[in-house]
Lab assay of single mutants.
Amino acid sequence: MIINNLKLIREKKKISQSELAALLEVSRQTINGIEKNKYNPSLQLALKIAYYLNTPLEDIFQWQ
Rank of each mutant, 00 (worst) to 15 (best):
N32W: 09
A22L: 13
E11W: 07
A46F: 03
R28T: 15
K14M: 13
A22D: 12
K48R: 14
K48N: 07
I60W: 02
I15P: 00
Y39D: 07
P41K: 01
K12Y: 13
S18M: 13
K7N: 06
T30M: 12
N5Q: 05
M1D: 05
S16G: 09
I31Y: 04
A22W: 07
L23Y: 14
I49P: 00
N4A: 03
K48F: 04
Q62E: 11
I60L: 12
E25W: 07
L45C: 05
Q64C: 08
K12S: 14
L23E: 09
K7Y: 06
E35N: 01
K36N: 15
K13W: 07
N32I: 15
S18T: 13
I60Y: 01
Q62F: 07
I49W: 01
V26R: 04
S16H: 05
L57Q: 03
L57A: 04
G33N: 15
R10I: 03
I34N: 00
I49G: 00
P56D: 08
Q29Y: 11
I9C: 06
L53Y: 01
L8D: 15
K7G: 08
S42G: 09
I2K: 09
L20V: 03
K38Q: 15
I49N: 00
S18Q: 14
E25C: 10
M1Q: 06
T30E: 09
S18G: 14
A46H: 01
K14L: 13
L45N: 03
W63S: 04
K14F: 10
Y52F: 14
K7W: 05
I31N: 00
Q29K: 14
S16L: 07
K13D: 04
Y52G: 05
L8H: 14
Y51R: 12
S27L: 03
L6M: 11
T30R: 08
P56W: 04
T30G: 03
L47I: 12
K14R: 14
I34L: 07
D59C: 07
A22K: 12
E19T: 12
K48L: 10
S16A: 07
L43P: 09
V26T: 10
R10D: 01
K7E: 13
G33A: 15
E35M: 02
K14V: 06
L24N: 03
I34M: 05
D59R: 08
S16N: 08
S42N: 11
I49D: 00
S16F: 04
E35D: 02
L57S: 03
K13I: 09
Q17T: 09
N40L: 14
T30I: 13
Q17K: 09
D59G: 08
D59E: 14
S42Q: 05
A46Q: 06
Y51H: 14
I15W: 06
W63G: 04
K36G: 11
